[in-house]
Structure formats: structure tokens, C-alpha cells
Deep mutational scan, measured.
Amino acid sequence: CHSECLGNCSQPDDPTKCVACRNFYLDGRCVETCPPPYYHFQDWRCVNFSFCQDLHHKCKNSRRQGCHQYVIHNNKCIPECPSGYTMNSSNLLCTPCLGPCPKVCHLLEGEKTIDSVTSAQELRGCTVINGSLIINIRGGNNLAAELEANLGLIEEISGYLKIRRSYALVSLSFFRKLRLIRGETLEIGNYSFYALDNQNLRQLWDWSKHNLTITQGKLFFHYNPKLCLSEIHKMEEVSGTKGRQERNDIALKTNGDQASCENELLKFSYIRTSFDKILLRWEPYWPPDFRDLLGFMLFYKEAPYQNVTEFDGQDACGSNSWTVVDIDPPLRSNDPKSQNHPGWLMRGLKPWTQYAIFVKTLVTFSDERRTYGAKSDIIYVQTDATNPSVPLDPISVSNSSSQIILKWKPPSDPNGNITHYLVFWERQAEDSELFELDYCLKGLKLPSRTWSPPFESEDSQKHNQSEYEDSAGECCSCPKTDSQILKELEESSFRKTFEDYLHNVVFVPRKT
């Protein structure tokens, strides 16, 4: 048989008469490798580009789960590009990614509803959504962080984005990388972005840091009482949809009607710091009717980097990364020049730590249904340095008659930039024990000054392991946590139920 035959053949030295091919099969003959313009397919066939392209389009058009959109890589027609490569849609070739590779997620039936953290986790790592997304989240724990972890990498949506009755959302900033909504599939009414009845939605994105392009379709905003109209108009300008909307697409009466839409800028007039305090004062603000001013709200939190936005980490279910302080308005003076500047002394802060701070007014709604208010920009203030805590785990070892090696770990709280350490030492008198000992005694162990690591005695271990207080009263049991108490109650309830079950099964009433 021919060298490319495997198993047997019907005619000697003829690659077209093989029972099976050793390498690849091409047009009725066995070959060692697939010549151009053919590609290896499933490690035994040679196919042309049209064959591989037909497989790709067949799966793409069917949208069946589990099928493969075949691509070409290293002269092979394979189910998908290997790690580190992405497909070129024009020629199906796998090309190296520039940075992290995109991950295209194809949605069944063309859309997916995100109504819980669990459903959001199914899209973790996706960068391109081939379909439409509907966000409908009523509640949950730590929602802002969970949504950002699972949806934060999405850069492109081919269909539309719909935010509907998501009472738990305060902001859409968890879509931190969303840059493009194509609108290839539109919501009824030709809408590519749809926001309806979101009672706590206050911000779409921080438009000073976020760009969003909507290729096709219109915007729809109705019944978002805490979303200011200025935020919607800003989205029109940034996304390129200005002029597409009709009169009733953006409701003037049901958007922002319960919001404090600040239209003035508060400026800080005085800032002073110490290692654990920050004193702030800002310019006074009074609405047209000074009785509408209820006070100020001061927001602050630790910020290692200057990239904080107002609604980071917030949701309507209680999660809030900001510390909020309510401040009463100052006494009002008739003389504008003698107006008191409101302020606040922030206490209990960490030394040498940068804080993000902003302040906003708290006002009631005027009778004319106009909203007044003022808010400052987010500023960054760093507390002063102070003395560091003591170095940890000092170790001293003498390696000769004239040297001592000293080692330690950095302090747990540096409280500033540590530039150097101060080492103090003092000579001590020799131990009298060394002169009084009889060095001729056998088995004498000389006193040693070398360091030995501390260890816990058996008594201390027994005390720590004991669940009861000892007789001397030195140790006591740790208080039980809520989960331990709940577990004990469940076990007790189970024992009672099981005992009742045994009584009912074992003891049967005697027939009379």
C-alpha cells in the first residue's frame, strides 16, 4: 500500500485506493498535508475557505447554543480562536489581540433580562453583547459592586439597553466600559436606550469621564423622579442622539420631579488639616426662599486615587461607600458681607490618608415646582503625618564578641513616609551569675543571650482551647457569634421535631 494509506488498500502504491488515510483526505486521495488554498479540518480532512465560511455563517444565523462559528488559524479551520487571539470578521482569520481579548457573548432569543446578581454573573467577562440587555433589578445585597464585577467589562451592545423598574439602582456607572450601543435591534418605538419607572436612579454616568455613542435609535425617559433633566440632556449631547427624540420621548413632568437638581456650584473657602482632623468651610448658599434650606450634607471617604465619582458603590438597598454628615444651616444675616460661612470639623480620621470630599445642599421643593440647590466639586484632601507606631517583631542576635545583629519589621501604621529608623542602645553591667558559677561542674549549661522565638506554653494553649472559665478566673470563653447562636437554635429545633416524629412513629394507638 501507499505510504499515506492506513489499515489496508485495494490497489498497491495508489493513494486513492486506501481504506483510511494516515494524515489527511483531499478529493478522494490521501495526502501528507493540505496544500494551499485548503485548510486542515478536524485533523483528517482538507477543506477550502468557502466550506469553513459556510459553517461560520450557519452557526451565526441559527443562534443555536453550542454550535461553533468556525475560524481560520495556522492553516486550520477550527471552532474558535485560541487564547490571546480574536477573529477578523472580513476573512475569519485569528489575529493577536492588542491588550485583553474581546469576548463576544451571543444571547438566546436576542435579549437577556438581568433581574438578579445570579443572572448578571452569566455575563461575567463579556466585552461584546450580541443582542439586547434588559435591566430589571428590584433589590439585593452589595448590588453596585456585584454588577460592576460582572457587567463592568461590557464595551458594546449590538441591540438596545433597557432599564425598567430597577428600584435598587442609583447610577449606571457599573457599566464602566460601555462605549457603544449599535441599535441594530430596537425596542418598540425605535428606541435604543429605554429608561422607565426607576424610582431611585439619580445618575446615568459621570459624563466628564465617560463617552457613549448610540449609532441608531432614540432615547426614552419616563417616570424617573430623581433623575434630573440636565442629566438626560447631557446624554443626548454626548451620545449623538440630540435631535432624534420626539416631543413625548422625554417626559418633562415625570423626570426629576422629586430630585434636588443642583444648578449652582458650592466653593470651599477654608481648608485646614491635622493628622486626624480636617476643618472645612464653604461659601454660604440661600435659595430664593431661605426657609427652603434644610441644611447641608457632607460626604467623605478614603480615596487612594483621584478618580472618585459621587455615586460609586451606591445602591438604593443601603450600600453606600460614603460617610454622610448632616449639618444645620448657619444663622442668616441681613448683611451679605457678614454672612457666616458654614463648615464642619471632621474628626477621627487616619493620618497621612487622602480623602475625597464634597458637600451639597438639602432643600425642600418650592411652590413653583422649581428645584434649587448647590453642590461642590469633589475635592481631595490629605491629612498630615504623625509619629508612626512601633516597629514590629524586633530580633537581636550576637554573632561574635563585638557585634549584635538587630532586625525588625516595619510598623503596622507608618502614618507617613518613613525615611529612617533611630536605634538606641545602652551598655549593661555583666551578670554576677557568670562569676559565681563553678565551671568545672559536669552538665553545666552556660547562660545564653542568643534570641529564641517566643512560644506559647501548654497552660496558655489549654486556656485558649477551654470553653469555660478556669477556677483562677484568668480566662473566659469568647462570646458566641450570631451565626453560632442561630445554628444552635436550628439544631435544637431539629432535635425537638425529630423526637416528636419518633414518638408518633414508635407509639401507635392500640386498636379498641
Rank of each mutant, 00 (worst) to 15 (best):
I327A: 06
K103R: 13
A120V: 08
L123T: 03
H233N: 06
G189W: 06
R347A: 08
K209Y: 13
E283L: 06
S389P: 03
K407L: 04
A259W: 08
N334Q: 13
L151A: 05
K301Q: 05
T241N: 11
G131S: 02
L252P: 08
P288R: 13
K226A: 09
F311P: 11
P411L: 02
R369S: 07
T254M: 13
V363I: 14
E122I: 03
D197W: 02
E184R: 08
A316L: 11
S260E: 07
D335P: 03
L172W: 00
F221A: 14
G152V: 02
L349W: 00
Q216H: 11
H106D: 04
D289M: 03
N255V: 03
I134V: 11
L266K: 00
R291I: 11
L265P: 14
Y300F: 04
L169R: 00
I232V: 03
Q258W: 13
E148Q: 12
L143I: 15
S389Q: 04
R202Q: 03
Q121F: 10
K162R: 09
N211E: 10
C317K: 01
Q382R: 11
L204S: 05
F299T: 07
S321E: 13
N387T: 09
K267T: 10
M235K: 00
F174E: 01
W322K: 00
W282D: 00
L219W: 09
E184S: 14
T361F: 03
E109T: 14
F174C: 12
L266T: 03
Q314E: 14
K409D: 07
W282N: 01
D115Q: 06
V363N: 11
G139S: 15
E184Q: 12
E237M: 11
E231Y: 01
A120S: 09
K234A: 05
L349M: 05
R291Q: 15
K350C: 14
N200D: 07
D315E: 03
I378Y: 03
G343R: 12
L123V: 12
Y194G: 12
D292N: 12
Y160N: 07
H210V: 09
L196F: 02
K234R: 13
Q121N: 10
T113E: 11
P394C: 14
F296A: 05
H222I: 02
N190S: 09
K337P: 13
A120L: 08
L252E: 04
P330E: 10
P351V: 07
N141A: 15
T213K: 06
T383A: 02
C261N: 03
D315I: 05
E283I: 04
S338A: 09
R247T: 11
A251D: 03
L169H: 05
N255P: 05
I137L: 11
S402P: 03
V308K: 07
L212K: 01
R124I: 14
G256P: 04
S366H: 15
N150F: 14
I114T: 01
P288N: 11
W205P: 01
I154M: 10
E368W: 15
S319M: 15
V363D: 05
Q382K: 11
S166C: 11
K209E: 04
K360L: 04
G217E: 00
P287N: 02
S260G: 05
N307L: 12
T371R: 08
L331G: 15
L107G: 05
L294C: 06
G240T: 03
R176N: 05
Y372N: 11
I137G: 12
G110P: 04
A303S: 10
G131P: 00
C228I: 03
F296L: 03
L265Q: 13
T241L: 14
P284I: 05
G140T: 05
L293I: 03
L252G: 14
D289S: 06
L172Y: 01
P411S: 02
I163R: 00
Y191L: 05
Y270V: 13
T113C: 15
I379D: 01
T371S: 10
F221P: 00
R124Y: 01
N263S: 09
R244E: 06
R369Y: 14
I278G: 00
G373C: 03
Q245A: 13
K209S: 08
Y191K: 06
F365L: 06
M297F: 01
S396Y: 03
M235W: 03
P284S: 03
Q382I: 14
T113K: 12
S119F: 04
Q306A: 14
I357H: 00
T118Q: 01
V104A: 08
S319G: 10
W344M: 02
L204P: 02
L229V: 15
S274W: 04
P330G: 05
N340H: 10
